[in-house]
Design a protein around this nucleic acid. Sequence first.
RNA 1: GGGCGCAUAGCUCAGCGGGAGAGCGACGGCCUUACAAGCCGUUGGUCACAGGUUCAAAUCCUGUUGCGCCCACCA
Length: 933
Amino acid sequence: MKIDQTYNPTEVEAQWYDFWLKNGYFRADETSEKEPYTIVIPPPNVTGSLHMGHALFVTLQDLLIRWKRMDGFEALWLPGTDHAGIATQVMVERELAKEGTDRHELGREEFLKRVWAWKDEHGGTIIDQMKHMGASCDWERERFTLDEGLSKAVREAFVRLYEDGLIYRGERMVDWDVIGQTVLSDLEVDREEEMGKLWYLKYPLADGSGHIVVGTTRPETMFGDTAVAVHPDDPRYKDMIGKMIRLPLVDREIPIIADTVLPDPTKGSGAVKITPSHDPNDFECGIRHNLARIQVIDFHAKINENAPAEFVGLDRFDARKLVVQRFEELGLLDRIEDKPFTPGRSQRTGAIVEPLPMLQWFVKGEPLAKPAIEAVESGRTEIIPAVWKKTYDHFMYNIRDWCISRQLWWGHQIPAWYCDDCDHITVNRQDPTHCEGCKSANIRRDEDVLDTWFSSALWPFSTLGWPEKTVELDKFYPTQVLETGFDILFFWVARMMMMGTYFMDDVPFDKVFLHAMVRDAEGQKMSKTKGNVIDPLHMIYGAQSEDLDAELHAELLRQYPEGVDAQGADALRFTLAMYAAQGRDIKLEVKRIEGYRAFLNKLWNAARFGLMNLEGFEAPSYKTFTDVWTTEDSSKPFVPADLSIADQWILTRLNQTITEIQTELEEFRFNEVAQSLYRFVWNDLCDWYIELIKPALYDDTPEGAATRKAAQSTLLFTLESVLRLMHPITPFITEDIWQALPRAEDAPKSIMIAAFPHARPELEMTAAHDQMALLLDIISSIRAIRGETNVKPGVVIDEVFFVTEDVNKRAAIESGAAYIQRQAKSSTLTIISAADAAKLEGVATAMVQGIEIRIPLKGLINIEEELARLNKEISRVEADIAFVSRKLSNEKFVAKAPEEIIAKERAKIQAYENEHNALLASLAELKTLEASG
RNA sequence: GGGCGCAUAGCUCAGCGGGAGAGCGACGGCCUUACAAGCCGUUGGUCACAGGUUCAAAUCCUGUUGCGCCCACCA
């Protein structure tokens, strides 16, 4: 049982995933008696590949699942992928374009075959990559939003919502993606402010009595104007209401109408051109006044034949220029103002969307939102961090109907049939053969598919077999936690809440944990154009410079021209957990991943040290040793004999760490979990405990056998326990080491099915812990004197004196002398009285927990240095005294502060004064010594 | 236009009523038989600014400034 001399993450991580998989440890049993703990994965795009955002959610969700699995729950992490309508379709279309064809030439059926082929070829990539992260998903339950079962769920949901009047088809103003050739929902349109212009155009009155000026940001839409609206109370235009305008360029007459809703006398010229076909406001205004709708921009953003000949076929922005030019030529351009505005852009294609009135399918927002709001309000579902609740509420209270139809082929085709002979629409669970209204066989199915997010909204129950009443659904719904990024709070989380409460009559999850966004070290979003992408797989397996893309990874190459070393999935996971403080951007630095790999190397070496010193050590039976974690039963306490105070100290620290981690996990404070582990492993276990027990371990005499065995037991127990605590974050290295540790026959086969530690009262050995803590303080203090007075590390200090009247402390020093001697490189330790201390000449002094430490110099210590050190100490203590006495002399403080605070301050000042006196005495002696040469 | 968040050590961030913490960096010293991917020590901060509440404020309240994000039919 040995492990390699150096920690090689790639080697360590190679074998264990298959081992876990083969043993079926990831499988969740729906018939189990155990309490369920379910997380559904946020399904990544099926054609995507792993990025840092995925790496973060895999880390956090796997952490939760592995923890709960070890903790005795029936843990289900349900994986799957999303068909990602537009994204996937666009990729295949791009491929077709290279072949010089397109989907229309291919036809719907052939095209879909191509997409499925693409999916089959590339769809496994991201799943495979998640496995490299260590994801312990129940792969046997992997789902795909377009698979048979989920398609059935989508169909059922659509039909039911339609039957219940919550889905309707209607003509509404929608945002059209002129590149993607589909409508988009509000959420898929991004708005970013840019500088634009506001053109003031003169529209001549038909009777020749003058003109009216309208302001517009979109002059090219004027071909579709069907009115100009003014406010009835606007004195400037009162007399013009009812008059006709002769619309320039198109030579058509349109009325000036009075409208109280739209025109704002303080904005623009106060008169608004009305283009019902190309502006949402104008659309509404058109309905109010029964205005005609003339579409002048087509679906490819070109001017159509409703405009004068010279404009037909022009791109809308070219047309804009020409319109302005013609107006200027006609002397009808009043003026131009600069004006910032925010055009809507398609999130996917970047195209400036064109608002158009179209017949589309919608889901009603309000009735579905109500119970979802209620669920969060009542605390049934808790959103963490709580700040997001406001955002959720704001969205839900202002929810708008959701446009769910898309003019794509890749997706769930809408189950609606239109009749050519009557206007009946058939919506059915089964494909109909004829019209439900007139029985005609001339029916056509709606060509459109559903928004991808419609199927995602059903994910927490569709993946468990809904609409069938399955055992899985019964066991695992509602899920316990939804863990995802806040960027899809509206797209996904809110909609799952709505659909879950509607179809399942219960929320889809108890808790929603929203994590931060992973960005680069400067806080910039990772993107190809910025060249700041950090690929998780490069971090895990390393990347030679030639593996890196000059464009994509420009920043990384700048930092690491030679490429990066393999850091391992464990180091990446530990780093991401460490970064996962609530409600913040994650500014990922490669250096930090390297730092945590060093931490894992530290753990590795601690284990190696353990193994080297456990040779021949027989592990006690699992049932009586490490198995203490499986039970709260105190009849099975952990009681190795002959524990040293160092042993008791580390066990107490371990127990304290377990307590901390328990709370931190429960409260999703993953960064603190990682921090507690880091501190315990590095500072407590490695820096102190291992050093403290070396003499005991190296002692193979018969007299030392008992303490040696106690140290071995404690070391093994501590290592074994901390591996379990770390396993949810760093599964590979912990398994690898754990498998190498001595174990009894009856131990479990894998750490991942071992029990997660809970704090145990019998490990809280306070007296020994405090005694050891005192010794550690003393050691640190002597080391500090050595360091600051330039005593060479190799030099042994002959004599160290301790002054204290406290019997307990005297006993502690006496019994712990060996620790001090070794750790602080000192030989003779003597406890003396204050009177004898006064006789010492030329000593360095320090104060620890009321104990004076005095080290005679005798050429050992540099006097200059010691004087400097003393003076620094003295001014520090004087500042402390001043601070506390100021507080204590404040009458109000003494009158109003709680008793224990005051008592604490009194004790403090006492201690400071003692220290001060000792230091002053030492200073005086030192000066005498210096004077005498 | 409305809403939310953030300003703490050179850097990245914890802390969120009782005397400012970590990691990295910097500086000094060590190849001490687990680890130089290491060990020992040191340094480093008007906790953005201005008021207020309190015996006590980095922490609570108000305002200011600077960044960031979200929502909004934005002539």
